[in-house]
Simulated assay, not measured.
Amino acid sequence: MNTETSKTTCMASPAEISQIGEDAGVYKASKKQILSFFSAIPAGAFIALAFVFYTTTQTGNLGTSWGLTKLVGGVVFSLGVIMVVVCGSELFTSSTMTTIARASGRISRFQMLRNWIVVYFGNFVGALFIVFLIWFAGQTMSANGQWGFTILTTAQHKIHHTWFEAFCLGILCNVMVCLAIWMSYAGKTLTDKAFIMILPIALFVASGFEHSVANMFMIPMGILTAHFSAPEFWQVINMDSQQFADLNLYHFIVKNLIPVTLGNIVGGGFCVGLALWSINRPH
């Protein structure tokens, strides 16, 4: 049996993966963008729910290994990206790889940028939907308020990077996210696709890299918790609300969302998408 043929029955070859990625980019940018918007809403919700799962694993972990705790958080967060892929939703960070469809000349620059904007705002809607569901569900009071305290400290940490640090963390994050998506193209079964994405996603989450869509949940959740929690919340966690006064829209957008989004575009669209496509596509 031919060795190459044997390999491709188990997984797509690098050249085939490049073609799949290019075709996916063409499909995303060419279809009716109202469909992309509505497809992006559940993707934003899936990533937000994954951060809910992450937050739960990081709550009340005093005395445990920092690294192992982060590993657990990263592994459970991978569920969000798995749901996005399996359910066929559109996620901004992976949609940055439509750069390869643009490089091949199969879509226009306008189509590419339009898709990014539509999906970005659809993801934002989905993430905020989960923010409000979690808020009105009273989840921040879980574990005697420690769940909400985890939200506060995580969100506050994210707005205290320098602009360039946030940009670089955004690049690193989307390198891993898009590598996870790229490798999932090689899979021939649901198990293949889901399993191969776990560790790349766990790497970026455990390492503290920055994902724009995840932050659309985490930081607004932190802002709500910081400014609208009842006095009982502050009493049970024994903290002063003024310690989190810097959790506001200005710091969210200017100090985090803008540089992280730009970094995500560079990491996914150029460092992974264009790089791997240029190397592996049939010439």
Rank of each mutant, 00 (worst) to 15 (best):
T3V: 15
E4T: 00
S6G: 12
T8L: 01
T9K: 14
M11L: 14
S13D: 11
P14C: 13
G21Y: 10
A24W: 07
G25V: 06
V26A: 11
K28V: 05
A29I: 02
S30F: 08
S36Y: 07
A40N: 11
I41H: 11
G44Q: 04
A45M: 14
I47M: 03
I47L: 12
A48M: 08
A48T: 06
L49R: 08
Y54R: 07
Y54L: 14
T57I: 09
T57E: 01
Q58S: 13
G60V: 11
W66P: 15
G67D: 05
G67T: 12
G67Y: 02
L68G: 06
L68R: 05
T69D: 07
L71H: 02
V72Y: 07
G73V: 08
S78C: 02
V81F: 15
M83L: 15
M83I: 09
T96R: 02
T96A: 13
T98C: 03
T99R: 03
A101E: 07
R102I: 07
S104M: 09
S104G: 12
G105W: 00
Q111C: 12
L113T: 00
R114P: 11
I117H: 00
G122V: 11
N123A: 03
N123H: 01
F136Q: 10
G138W: 09
Q139H: 14
A143E: 14
N144P: 00
Q146I: 08
W147K: 02
L152N: 07
T153H: 10
T154D: 03
Q156A: 10
Q156K: 05
H157W: 04
I159L: 07
F164G: 06
F164A: 04
C168L: 15
C173N: 04
A180I: 01
I181C: 10
M183E: 02
S184L: 07
L190R: 07
L190M: 09
D192A: 00
I196G: 09
I196W: 08
M197V: 06
I198K: 02
V205E: 09
A206P: 05
S207M: 02
F209Y: 03
S212G: 00
S212A: 09
N215R: 02
M218W: 03
I219Y: 11
G222F: 13
L224V: 07
A226W: 02
F228W: 11
A230V: 02
A230I: 09
A230M: 13
P231H: 03
W234V: 08
Q235E: 14
V236H: 10
V236N: 04
N238M: 13
D240P: 12
D240Q: 14
Q242A: 15
D246P: 10
L249Q: 10
Y250F: 15
H251C: 01
V254N: 05
N256M: 08
P259K: 11
P259G: 07
V260Q: 00
L262Y: 09
G263F: 04
G263P: 05
F270L: 12
A275C: 14
L276V: 01
L276T: 01
I279P: 03
R281L: 09
